[in-house]
Amino acid sequence: MRRFHLHLVSDATGETCITIARAAAAQFQGVDAVEHLWSLVRTESQLRRVLAHVEAEPGVVMFTLVDPQLRALLHEECRRIDVPCIPLLDTVIAALSGFLGIESRNQPGRQHVMDAAYLKRIEAMNFALGHDDGRSSATLGEADIVLVGVSRTSKTPTCFYLANRGLKAANVPVVPACPLPPELGGLTDALVVGLTCHPEQLIDVRRSRMRMIGDIGETGYVDPLQVEEEVRQARRLFAESGWPVIDVTRRSIEETAAAILQLHDRRA
């Protein structure tokens, strides 16, 4: 495994840097990027402290600074110590500026303003928290999306990912011999999606969860025959209800959420 230092410099939270850098680094097999996140860098003194660390542990610098003086200083110093310096947003901003015919504001953190969209995301987060694992079923009708599935099919983290996109997402577990909330059958506006998973992966995930909480006993929760029957019954439920189904086997949370968002957009 080849390791290298990756310095991410931002005048805001650094989320954009992290996302782009990880997406790029993931394309290289056998490479381990040691990330150094330098966020809220807005003064020359702050930037010089970052540069001292870059010089001590040279690698690749990626940045999303908008202040022209800080950008010039970063480029100059990186050239001096002979490390690559990559502006992540320049091409996009230049293309937008050319298309729109106006200059960019060059204002740090513009994407994090507390506007209506931000407040909507907060509301969605609170909704996901209050409607996790079948709770608050009386207000299930307020959801934009409801995820249904057996235990450990990533329902909760997927709901919070969707909430970060401003969608009210609830999740309902399918538990053997336990009836689903009656409100689920009466939903008309919400998109209901069934999540399923290959039994073998489900058992691995459940065993891992049990080890985390200190439970190492053998139970029906990880019994192969019972898990297979759980998955089979859940799939039968989804088919009878006419709900779209997403197999989360070997899918990341982001990939599952992307598939759900496509279903939601087509339904809108």
Rank of each mutant, 00 (worst) to 15 (best):
W38V: 06
L162W: 01
S104L: 05
F63E: 05
L8F: 08
Y118P: 11
T249M: 09
F28Y: 15
I86R: 01
I246D: 01
A258W: 03
C85N: 10
F99S: 13
R121N: 11
I102D: 12
E240R: 13
A124P: 07
I260S: 03
L140C: 04
A24R: 02
N106F: 01
M125I: 15
V193F: 00
M212G: 02
V205Q: 15
F28E: 04
I246K: 08
P108E: 10
S241G: 02
V146D: 02
T196M: 01
L6N: 06
H75K: 15
V83M: 07
G14I: 06
F63D: 03
R48I: 03
N164M: 08
V174Q: 10
A52H: 03
V41N: 01
T19P: 03
G217M: 04
R207V: 10
T13P: 04
R152Q: 11
L40H: 15
V245Q: 14
F99H: 10
P173G: 02
D204P: 01
V146Q: 09
D265S: 06
I93A: 09
I20F: 12
D82A: 15
R49W: 06
A94H: 07
I81Q: 09
W243K: 14
P179G: 05
G134W: 00
M1K: 09
R206N: 05
A259N: 04
V150L: 02
T43N: 11
